[in-house]
Design a protein around this nucleic acid. Structure first.
Lengths: 193, 193, 193, 193
DNA sequence: GATGAATGAGTGTTCATTCAT
DNA sequence: CATGAATGAACACTCATTCAT
């Protein structure tokens, strides 16, 4: 019975992955600590070396994903482009992230619609999205975008996107390049003046 | 003609209400059968008189809400109006339902983003929304609405709406008559040709 | 697999007995709920039908014993006898109880010296011993007993007794009729004026 | 000549203190090795440098206290005094020790009433109290003290004392110089011929 | 000598469900 | 129809202890 003393971070990441996978497959209710640990090839007690408790694991997993998403969004963020292009870039970045990480996206949706979401320090999460919000403010000032609350704008840009990219909600819908451009067009029509 | 409910139906309804309340407050994971039964002032074993098991209770609760929502949507459905007005009426009906039944709406969101949603017989649920779908088809034929998949259209009409009406997701946002009309305008801009 | 639906009280008593036995044999620290349940031939979950939690079980067991002891003490309590005889009767009653129920006595000692003892509603327990306390008050008034706090008197009457009757503390000591009378004589010498 | 303690001995003592404190506050059952180590500002694994296991720690702590108590008892032991005075000195020495070290005393009581006590090498512990026992033997020979087993004598001298000095058992009782002298008087009355 | 990482075994407790009544 | 008693299985979590460093 060899005792591996590998570096921690591998285990922590394995736990994130296991959490995402299991919560998507069987939901929060059935994703027990022991199942998650087994999926991550770790002893249940080892989980408590990295997280305070189950709640902490779930919330940390969410914050981890949200941060990744923010990075994806800002990766090709170019302030000098026309506003429509900035938003279009962001929209596609998010779509790509969600398409390439459907499990992470599904976890995010399930989490943010559950009471667990109230445990997240929202300031920390939202901070990452500020630059993108600023663009919308600028768009409003330049009379390019409708003068409504930022959260209403965001609801029209990102919410349909999440739904369309979510195979659980839109199993039958196969997105392709053309439909994608149509969808962004609709999002833009919704918010443009 | 007042409907005389038998004792049973009162209990069944009490169980629906208890389920909705508890799942919203503490989530699926913590909403145990015994807690739900206690909240409904019923013995846990009585629950099994009305439902096969916990899963059946959760799914039935969802279907019940979805059906109520469909009724609300179709209540003032008038085929003879212009297409924009039909959709506007539907949009407002849904918004009103969600505003007046925030718990039901939150349950719906939480349920439909969870793996439980795969247990629902979708045909049954979607049947109720067919008339509304037909209106959109007609709108496409009449070149009033963009020619894209119905589910994409629905995503732009209803998804932002649910988010805006959901206090968990938009706690800080106070919707009023003006913002509401703006929001519908945006939804319409998104789908109209 | 026959399902016995015997009357509850049997199980509750079996749990009391199992608790006393195990706590004496292996101590509070090792007396787990599952071990106690197994000793009582009951499922661990059944234990929670009768007691709120482990603490409640331990405290209830103590109160049960204390109540039995009080009954033993008062059984042949005769107010009309001379004060020395009343106290002597009580002293022998307690000694007999402790000799015949060494496990209960040992549990009592272990419990009352542990932090669990702070969870007991002392008013309830002490109420039962009031008549005996009154005799001592009368003895003080009649100048038969030293005028000191009742708890000091009680410490001299009952504490040595418990120690002498406790096989854990006095394993080597075999009490017989003569030593017993000597011991009571010492207790009486301590408190008499 | 100040005693230079090596680093180790400080840690060992810190572990003794932590054990006593925690066992008094939360009992044996809840005093885990890790809690004790944390209280002593030491790693749990360090504990195993000084003690074989948890049991060894608990027993060693008891023996340590018992030895301190014996030292206190013998500190002003003067063989040349009259027997009553020797015993009185011892009685007061013990009372003082218990008053000044209530935690140690409470630990001792809790320990000696638990099954752990069976793990102690009694010969080692009792050896320290031999001189005091000899005094009682001499008292018996000189017809000053009742001719009964030493352990019965000890039970009347020390048991009430421990109870009276134990705040857990006698919370309400405030001992003062007068009550103290009364209490010793009673102990003496119990054993004197 | 001292410790942080790790874990199998076990903790107290709650679970969904059954069954006799 | 409705329920109280009962439980095996599972829960989240902590335990005493080990071992490489």
């Amino acid at each position: 019975m060899p005792i591996m003393r590998t570096k921690d971070e591998n285990k922590k990441e394995a736990l994130f992955r296991a959490t995402i996978k299991l919560v998507n497959e069987i939901g929060f209710a059935s994703s027990s600590v022991s199942k998650i640990a087994k999926e991550a090839n770790v002893s249940p007690s080892t989980l408590y070396v990295f997280f305070d408790n189950k709640e902490d694991l779930l919330v940390s997993t969410y914050v981890e994903i949200k941060t990744q998403l923010a990075h994806a969004l800002l990766e090709n963020f170019d302030d000098t482009l026309p506003i429509r292009d900035i938003i279009r870039n962001g929209w596609y970045s998010v779509f790509n992230y969600v398409s390439e990480h459907p499990d992470e996206a599904a976890y995010m949706e399930q989490f943010s619609n559950s009471p667990y979401s109230e445990l997240v320090d929202k300031a920390v999460v939202e901070r990452e999205f500020v630059p993108f919000g600023n663009v919308m403010v600028k768009g409003i000032e330049q009379k390019i975008i409708k003068d409504v609350d930022i959260s209403i704008l965001a609801a029209f840009i990102f919410n349909p996107l999440f739904r369309l990219a979510n195979p659980r909600l839109c199993a039958e819908l196969e997105m392709n390049e053309e439909k994608l451009e149509q969808a962004f067009g609709m999002a833009w029509d919704a918010i443009k003046l």
